[in-house]
């Protein structure tokens, strides 16, 4: 008798397999599952700290103050020395074809001397 003949038939194996345990899941599995889902969902929500937003009219206050200061300075004439015409001189010396800084310096020194 060879080895194959000693083994049980497929039909017999199926009869034995039919007796294997059919596991049953716990009765409250679904409730526990959904509780876990709720927990996961709650953990996924990150609470950002509430940003303090200043009142909108407060933002305009420094701008209005800056405008008022500008108008007052302009009207009082105290910014006259800051204007471009008072801050520059018209060049009176012809410095020719200066090709660099040294040329300019020597031209000016030559004029002074």
């Amino acid at each position: 008798m060879n080895e194959e003949q000693k083994l049980m038939s497929d039909h017999d194996l199926d009869r034995l397999l039919a007796l294997a345990t059919t596991p049953a899941v716990g009765p409250d599995f679904q409730q526990r599952m959904m509780a876990k889902i709720n927990l996961t969902t709650a953990n996924n929500v990150v609470a950002f700290p509430q940003k303090h937003r200043p009142k909108s009219w407060l933002v305009g206050l420094p701008l209005a103050a800056s405008l008022a200061l500008g108008l007052w300075l302009g009207a009082s004439g105290s910014t006259i020395n800051l204007q471009p015409t008072n801050n520059t001189e018209v060049a009176t010396t012809d410095i020719g074809d200066a090709s660099g800084f040294d040329d300019i310096v020597s031209e000016i020194e030559g004029v002074k001397s």
Binding site: L7, M8, D12, L13, R15, L16, L17
Partner: peptide, 20 residues
């Protein structure tokens, strides 16, 4: 898988079937 099961049950499979 089925052959493996049959081999593992070669010793006591028939007695289980007889008990059934």
């Amino acid at each position: 898988a089925r052959r493996g099961l049959k081999l593992m049950l070669a010793q006591d499979g028939q007695s289980m079937l007889a008990a059934l």
